[in-house]
Design a binder for these strands. Structure first.
Lengths: 141, 141
DNA sequence: TCAACAGTTGCGATTGGGTCGCAACTGATG
DNA sequence: CATCAGTTGCGACCCAATCGCAACTGTTGA
C-alpha cells in the first residue's frame, strides 16, 4: 500500500517535471513507509538500510525538492533538527510530550478558525501557521 | 525607567545567587531598553555600542542564564537565529509578516483556553506552547 | 579591608545541522 | 541511442551555538 503511494507520487512528480532518480525513488518509498516524524539523518539511515546508498547532501536536497512540490512538510520543533512528514494527510498541529519526546498529532477547527479571525482583524491573511503544545502527562512530576 | 527595571532585576538575580558582573549588568540594561526582538549577535552589538565590551560567548551564556531565571524568553522562529524578549510582559503569541519580517504580538484568551482544553482531553497539561502565524497583508501579492 | 575561591569571562577551537561548488553521472526526450 | 539539462557525491564551507581552559572577579567571611 505504501509502495503504491510511492508509485503514485513518482508519477505525479514526473508529470511536474521532477526527474525520478534511483535516490529519489528510494527516499519516496522510505517516506511513504513512515508513520513517524524522522529527521534527515534518520531518513539517510533508513534509505541505506533499505539497500539504496544516498548521500546526506542528496537527502537534504531531495527533501527540499519534495517540500517545494508539496509532497512533504517540514517540522521545526524547538532546538531539534528539522523533522519531516508526508503532506497528504489532513492538516494538523502537534503536541510534544516533553518527558518522552513523543509527538502527538491533533486538529481543532475552532482553533483554526480563531487564528484566521485574529489575522483578519489585524488586516492580514495567514500564509502558514505553527501551533505546538509542549505538554506533560497529568499527575506526573 | 528601563534603568530602574534593570536595577530591580539585578537585585532579584543577586538574591537568587546569580553573580552580577559588569557584562551581565550591561546586558540587563540593553535588554531592559529593548522594545523589539533582537538575536544574540544584535545584543552583542548593542552592548558594544553602549560602551561595554562583552564577548559573544558570554552573550550566549548570559542569555541562557537569564532564561533559566525567567527574566527573558527565547523565541525560535523558522530558520532564523533565536531571538529574545523580556519575560515580564503578559503572555502573548506572535504573528510574523512573511514579506517584511515584522513581528507583531497578540493575545487571545479563547485560543489559550482551547489549547488547555485540548491538552486536558488527551490527559496532558501544557508546560509551554508556541503559536506563530506567518501572515501577509491582505490584498498584497 | 582583604584573602580566598567558586563562579564568570574571553579566546579560539569545536560541534552540528544544513548548504554549496564542481566534476562525474544519468534520466528523459527526439 | 546520443544528447544534455538536471542530479549526485564528495569535501569544503557556513552559521548559530557551545565548550575547554587559563585568567579573572564578585561575593563572602574573618
Amino acid at each position: 500500500m505504501t509502495k503504491d503511494r510511492a508509485r503514485q507520487l513518482e508519477a505525479a512528480l514526473r508529470e511536474a517535471g521532477v526527474r525520478i532518480t534511483r535516490q529519489r525513488s528510494a527516499l519516496l518509498r522510505v517516506l511513504a513507509a513512515c508513520d513517524d516524524h524522522p529527521d534527515a539523518t534518520e531518513l539517510h539511515l533508513r534509505a541505506r538500510d533499505a539497500g539504496v546508498a544516498v548521500s546526506l547532501a542528496t537527502v537534504y536536497r531531495t527533501l527540499t525538492t519534495l517540500q517545494a512540490q508539496g509532497v512533504i512538510e517540514k517540522l521545526e520543533f524547538r532546538g531539534e533538527p528539522a523533522r519531516w512528514e508526508p503532506a497528504d494527510q489532513q492538516h494538523h498541529d502537534h503536541m510534544i510530550d516533553v518527558d518522552t519526546g513523543a509527538v502527538i498529532e491533533f486538529t481543532n477547527d475552532r482553533i483554526e478558525r480563531l487564528q484566521a479571525e485574529i489575522a483578519a482583524e489585524m488586516g492580514y491573511e495567514i500564509v502558514h501557521h505553527r501551533l505546538e503544545l509542549y505538554v506533560r502527562r497529568r499527575g506526573n512530576g
